[in-house]
Design a protein around this nucleic acid. Sequence first.
DNA 1: AGCCCTGTTTTTAC
DNA 2: AGTAAAAACAGGGC
Length: 293
Amino acid sequence: MPELPEIASRVREMQGALVGKTICHVDIVQPRSLNLPPEEFVSSMNGASVCEVTRRGKWIQVVTNRGHLLINMGMGGELLLCDATHLPEKRRAVLHFTDTTRLAVNFWWFGHIHFVPTDQLAEHRLTANIGADALEISTKDLADLVARHRGPIKTLLLDQARIAGIGNAYIHDILFMARLHPLRPSNTLTGPEVFALLEAIHHGLIPSMELGGAFYETDLHGRPGRFTVDHIMVGYREGQPCPSCGETIVKIKTGSNSSFICPRCQPLRPTDSGEGDPSGGPVGTAAPPSPAS
DNA sequence: AGCCCTGTTTTTAC
DNA sequence: AGTAAAAACAGGGC
């Protein structure tokens, strides 16, 4: 659940389900995920009651009266609210609540489960540097950000210290809706392009957030998100026609990751490959394309 | 069965 | 500043 729609969905669910519960024990399966020695982590959390659950970028913050539990799900995983008899096989840690329910935390690659006393939050390196939230940043701030960077626009959008919440799954459609090539130098964007980009960020993240996140992640009870491949326009659709112009979608290498683009709608240079479609283009095309067949 | 490749993240080092 | 490599794996293809 690495990206904003999934994290925001889990936070919403946790806010509803966890507030008021009190932690009475923590099982640590993978000490390397912690920021403290296991014994210290467990004793710090023991007796903590949950006040609220919020997020900063892709980090989940479980605010308790003892301090903040900061969770980063890395490249995906599950947060499951269950009882002692239904614990999932895969888990890195399990929070035990006094009402006998449990929260199992798992991630399959690079996650974090940190405990930070409230007065030391500012010193927590991994979250101290998080940039403006992708859904909250203003047009002006985005324009300033974009103008300050020379590298690929995609690199900037994935940089959590600059703008937080976008990851390498949702960015394909965001760049498509903004009609931007991922390797386009950030500081060459025009004013209208920046505006279109902000719109695209919203259109790219909000629908999934409202549907409980992507189908490949599950909610607190193990049910998959309702944002499916049918909602995706060009991401992971290599070889299929562009929903806007019909050109074949291609997968390209962009540095260390891959990108799915329509080469006609997202030329690297404005003059690169002509005009695109006459309908005004994908910007604002919030409606899902016809279902995948 | 086993090896190779890829990847929804983030940090660190050149 | 920008790019590359690394680090707690798992699933798919060959």
